[in-house]
Amino acid sequence: MTIEGCRYYAEVKGSGPTLVCLHGFAENSGTWEFLQLRDCQMVLVDLLGHGRSAKPSSLEPYSLPVLLGHLHELVAGLGCPRYSLLGYSLGGRIALAYGAAYPREVQGLILESSAYGIGDEEQRALRREQDAWLAQEILDRGIEWFAEHWSGLPLFASQTRLPREIRAKIRARRLGNEPHALANTLLGSGQGVFPCLREQIPALPMPILYIHGEQDEKYKGIGREFMDLNPGIRREMIPGAGHNVHLEKPAAFAEIVRNFLRELANP
């Protein structure tokens, strides 16, 4: 589907209640290949700048208001009046912002290893500097440098235990990116410019599930903050997993998601 000149790729799998799935930074919809959800229609979206979706050279389409508007038009065009959202990392931040923007349409939110944005202005400014540095490094050094740099972050240390073929697929998805698209994503919707949604969380009307790995200390703490802000949020910690829970522990992740969706269907 093409929206305001930007082509979006989305794959629809299965039948039943709709779950729109949003991947993380430098990933694409292929990251969900091991997520098996019975009696569910999964809409696997390649976010702008990723996968088979458009990779505009201009920065403006990567801003959050444009991303949310395009995503809303995409889902509406697929004929989904009511649906749930699943987002991992960057995709989770976008899902959270989407839920705040379109609360009457979103039945439930599933946030995997996701933040709500940086509230402290000094920290936001520092993150903008870091994102700008990384964006320029990607442009200067290229995708192979980025793939090595990104996989070496402590956040992804637990992925070294994954089977070789899965690690190869992760690397291939990272290598499939374009430098300008990753740079624009960092500058247009990275954490340094992403709005802090902390104040919106208590008022969100839909059920929310927050999933994180036992070994992901940063997002374990963020998960607790979500619960403090909204006691109705359910938090699930999956043992033996790090940041990317759905790849590291797919069976446990799928079971938790299935139970949540089942409860949404039968309140």
Rank of each mutant, 00 (worst) to 15 (best):
S151F: 07
D228F: 07
E217Y: 03
Q191E: 14
F156Y: 14
N230K: 03
A125E: 12
P207Y: 11
L229A: 09
E165H: 09
I222L: 12
T160V: 15
E199C: 04
I208V: 15
Y219T: 00
S151N: 03
N177T: 06
I201S: 08
S189K: 02
K169C: 08
N177V: 00
P154C: 12
I166K: 08
W150I: 03
W145P: 03
E121C: 10
P205V: 14
P195S: 11
Q191V: 14
E217R: 05
R198N: 03
G142V: 09
V193R: 10
I170P: 04
L186K: 07
R174D: 03
R124V: 05
R173N: 05
A147L: 02
A147W: 01
P231I: 10
A132I: 10
G221F: 04
G142R: 05
G188F: 01
Y210R: 00
P231A: 05
K218G: 03
I143P: 00
F146T: 01
E122D: 12
D216H: 02
L162Q: 07
E137A: 15
V193S: 09
I208T: 15
F226K: 01
G192I: 12
P205D: 09
R173V: 06
A183W: 06
L204T: 12
L197M: 11
I143V: 15
A172D: 14
P231L: 08
L134W: 12
L209M: 06
A181Q: 12
P163N: 02
T160R: 14
Q130I: 11
T160G: 12
E165V: 13
Q136D: 15
K220H: 06
E122N: 13
I208F: 04
G188S: 11
A147E: 08
F226N: 00
L204P: 10
L153M: 11
Q123A: 15
S151R: 06
N177Y: 00
H149I: 02
A181N: 11
R128K: 15
E217V: 04
A135M: 02
G142L: 11
W133F: 14
Q191G: 09
A132Q: 13
G117K: 07
W133N: 15
Q123Y: 04
Y219H: 04
I211C: 01
Q136L: 12
Q123R: 13
R167P: 08
G192S: 13
S189H: 05
Q215W: 06
G221C: 07
W150D: 01
L182Q: 11
K169P: 00
F226G: 00
G117P: 08
K169H: 08
P231T: 10
D216P: 03
G119S: 13
T185M: 14
L153E: 05
R127V: 07
E214I: 09
Q191Y: 10
E121S: 15
R167Q: 14
D131H: 08
G152Y: 02
E144S: 15
G119R: 14
A135T: 09
F226T: 01
P154N: 10
G176N: 05
E148G: 09
M206Y: 07
S151P: 00
L186H: 04
